[in-house]
Nucleic acid binder design. Structure first.
Ligand SMILES: [Zn+2]
Ligand SMILES: [Zn+2]
Length: 741
DNA sequence: AGCACGCCGACT
DNA sequence: GTCGGCGTGCTC
């Protein structure tokens, strides 16, 4: 019997870190049992969907315990082989449960076992008869009449959902109209092929762009990572476009990953207008249906280029020819909960498996990528020139220890603002803190209003959330109290600085100037940011104040003054990556100024004008910045001079996370065969111990060798779920954490 | 996670 | 008595 037993190894959506073995359903030909198909199985007391990962002949589980799968949900795989390989790699590297890994890659409909057909929608339009007929006949059918009137406004037709949006009930009316022969429909496939008005507008490349393009293209059909380094405005996007053009001309596909904020309609438009072939977009704003449609279309090869955020790394592309990761240093490529994958790192893995080139682009590369380039693992390509005639900006530090500040603005900063606005130019102020003020404090007793669920203070909001306090860590909010909760005194005042406050101050100083605030609070809702950006182009706003949203990827050609209100915040805060982040942010903001013809000026307010890192930043030489940071990482054994894995645990009770982590630590130390190679540090409570009602702790594994760290994780992590103390906490592993918060 | 089972206190 | 909270076990 055992000789030709066929056992199906399935991934099932559950936090359990293992696969589940089943026997094949009755009457299924062996050839149909391809990895990547889905089956319906009984799992415990439930019926669930499983994904076939492998067909094996042996199982760890006793034969009599194996259940038979109920039936196959697919005739052929819904996950292409390269993606299956990538997912399998991710299961092993991130030591996460296979079920959650494989299922996060799928659109919701496929997770639920629905069919993998290209979803369609109905496009309704008027027939010639419907166009010309007299509406008076419809006097007793007001719904039908409304629909006809609406369709006459939209000669290109309307979708069912668009009609449904206008009138709640519509189906019976449409049916009657179809019978009358006034209206008809056609089935359209539901994925929005991105269209562009302008087609084919070719740019000439400068010499360093040309070199980049040809170098990348000579590496086709082989694994080769490139680090494309170039300041904002040096034309990285042009390089991407020329490379992709060549790739898709050979009937291969291209995948472009961008940070969350970078995926603007402008950038999509740019790709569409330059590229022949269908471009599809994948981001968090899509409906489930649209996501499924893009997935199926991509799998069927109907899509040549996918542009998307982090999760687009799971696009089912069978003929991938190149991957591009733009702004590769951006932290949004790392998923920060559950299955904590890094899309940039997975891009490298995919490229290696598929033997294709991968391009990481950035003006301020991550230290990891920079280090890889130095070790010759990545080919470094530099775009030296800023496009156009613009000069690099002049940068000045303002020592604010000896200044009196008004809403965080020093006299020299104010003077510069006045000057640049008088010249008719635009100015930008950067402050990486939302709200009116980070704290509300009692004048009498000094009590600061805390969040009830976090070890943190409530942020004061005056405008957006009209007179409320909000916690940035858990979302809790309340009205601003009239009296101090501790001493009942009524004089509570906001202390510290936020963008709302700066905006208010600027409005009082420059009452006749258009002022825009750009942060997460003013840009909620789709299209809002886009409208603000458009109005900036039109010079409706001349003074901009904002958080890191301002820094990322948008073009503001007329800005000649950039002011950084607080360079120290972030530069000196606890986390090991804080310095890198802040340096990248400051350099990105600096890059916003002085494009086009005008050269720019940058003013940076600081209390530490002599700080080495700050000095390196204002030299605008990123390699100087990197040298300082890399030296620091070398001293501490942090990435890229070392590899990290962080075990996190949280619970509503104070002591349980640490108790679990202590058990976990003991186990790790016992299993650690190479103590010189992997160090177990902690456990300690998290920098902010309580968040959203949970007490949090963490245990850090630091390795000087990645294989040894991985080997320890592989033996250790599967054992953790059997610890008694594990039941009382929520725990998760973070391989290559981007921060230790 | 999601579901079932069994034990114990408390409440109509 | 029996309702329900929660600790424990199990998922091929
Ligand atoms: Zn008080
Ligand atoms: Zn909170």
């Amino acid at each position: 019997m055992a000789a030709h037993t066929c056992i199906l190894r399935l991934a099932i959506y559950s936090p359990l870190r293992r696969y589940f073995d089943y026997l094949p359903p009755n009457g299924i030909p062996y050839q149909q049992l391809q990895p990547g198909i889905r089956l319906q199985v009984s799992f415990g007391k439930r019926t669930v969907v499983g994904i076939l990962i492998a067909v094996v002949s042996q199982s760890q589980v006793a034969f009599h315990k194996l259940k038979q799968a109920q039936h196959c949900l697919d005739k052929s795989p819904i996950i292409p082989t390269p993606l299956l390989q990538l997912l399998t790699w991710a299961v092993n590297y991130y030591h996460h449960s296979p079920g959650e890994v494989f299922f996060t890659a799928l659109p919701r409909a496929l997770r639920q076992g629905k069919s993998a057909n290209l979803p369609t929608y109905r496009q309704w339009f008027l027939t010639p008869k419907g166009c010309s007929s007299d509406l008076k006949i419809l006097i007793r059918a007001p719904h039908q009449r409304q629909i006809i009137e609406l369709l006459r406004y939209h000669p290109q037709g309307l979708t069912s959902s668009e009609i449904k949006e206008k009138f709640g009930t519509y189906q019976s009316s449409l049916r009657s109209l179809v019978i009358k022969g006034w209206v008809n429909f056609k089935e359209e496939c539901a994925w929005k092929k991105q269209e562009s008005s302008k087609k084919h507008f070719k740019h000439l490349l400068n010499p360093s762009q040309k070199i980049a393009v040809t170098t990348i293209l000579t590496a086709q059909q082989k694994f080769q990572p490139f680090l494309l380094e170039g300041v904002t405005g040096s034309g990285k996007t042009e390089v991407y476009l020329h490379v992709i053009e060549e790739i898709i001309a050979k009937n291969q596909q291209a995948l472009v990953l961008t940070p969350e904020i970078g995926l603007t309609p402008q950038i999509v438009e740019r790709f569409c207008s330059h590229l022949q072939g269908s471009v599809a977009v994948l981001h968090s704003g899509l409906t489930d249906r649209e996501r499924l449609a893009v997935w199926v279309a991509a799998y069927e090869g109907k899509v040549a280029v996918i542009i998307g955020t982090r999760s687009a790394i799971w696009a089912p592309l069978q003929h991938l020819g190149i991957i591009i990761v733009d702004e590769e240093h951006d932290p949004s490529f790392k998923q920060q909960e559950g299955f904590r994958y890094h899309a940039r790192d997975l891009a490298i893995v995919w490229a290696r498996q598929a033997k294709i080139p991968v391009v990481l682009g950035s003006a301020t590369p991550s230290l990891e990528s920079l280090y890889n380039a130095r070790c010759q693992r990545y080919h470094l390509l530099q775009l030296s020139q800023r496009a156009g005639k613009a000069q690099t900006p002049q940068i000045y530090l303002i020592d604010i220890r000896s200044c009196s500040l008004e809403a965080g603005i020093s006299p020299p900063m104010l003077k510069a603002l006045e000057h640049h606005l008088e010249q008719g130019n635009q100015a930008l102020l950067f402050l990486n803190r939302r709200g009116f003020a980070p704290t509300l404090i009692c004048y009498e007793c000094g009590f600061i209003i805390p969040c009830r669920r976090c070890d943190s203070y409530m942020t004061v909001y005056q405008y957006n959330d009209s007179h409320r306090l909000r916690c940035h860590h858990c979302g809790a909010n309340q009205l601003i109290p009239a009296n101090c909760p501790q001493c009942n005194h009524s004089f509570l005042y906001p202390k510290g600085l936020g963008t709302e406050q700066v905006e208010a101050k600027l409005r009082s100083i420059f009452p006749d100037t258009g002022i825009a605030r750009i942060d997460r609070d003013t840009t909620r809702g789709s299209g809002v940011l886009d409208k603000i950006l458009n109005d900036i182009q039109k010079k409706k706003y001349r003074l901009l104040i904002g958080t890191q949203m301002l820094a990322k990827g948008h073009h503001y050609p007329n800005i000649t003054l950039v002011g950084i209100l607080d360079a120290d915040q972030g530069l000196f805060s606890g986390d090991f990556r804080a310095g890198e982040r802040m340096a990248q942010l400051i350099l990105q903001v600096i890059g916003r100024s002085g494009r086009g013809e005008k050269s720019g000026e940058v003013l940076i307010q600081t209390r530490h004008p002599d700080n080495l890192l700050l000095q390196a930043i204002i030299s605008q030489k990123y390699d100087r910045v990197a040298k300082i940071l890399l030296e620091e990482r070398y001293q501490t054994g942090f990435p890229p001079h070392g590899y990290l894995a962080l075990l996190r645990a949280k619970s509503a009770l104070v002591d349980t996370p640490i108790a679990f982590l202590e058990n976990a630590r003991d186990m790790a130390i016992a299993l650690n065969t190479h103590q010189g190679m992997v160090t177990v540090l902690g456990p300690v409570s998290a920098p902010m111990e309580r968040r959203a009602g949970y007490y949090r702790g963490q245990l850090l594994l630091q390795g000087s060798s990645r294989p040894y760290l991985q080997q320890l994780l592989a033996t250790w992590i599967p054992k953790l779920e059997f610890l008694k103390t594990a039941r009382k906490v929520k725990w998760s592993l973070d391989v290559d954490p981007v921060d230790l918060m």
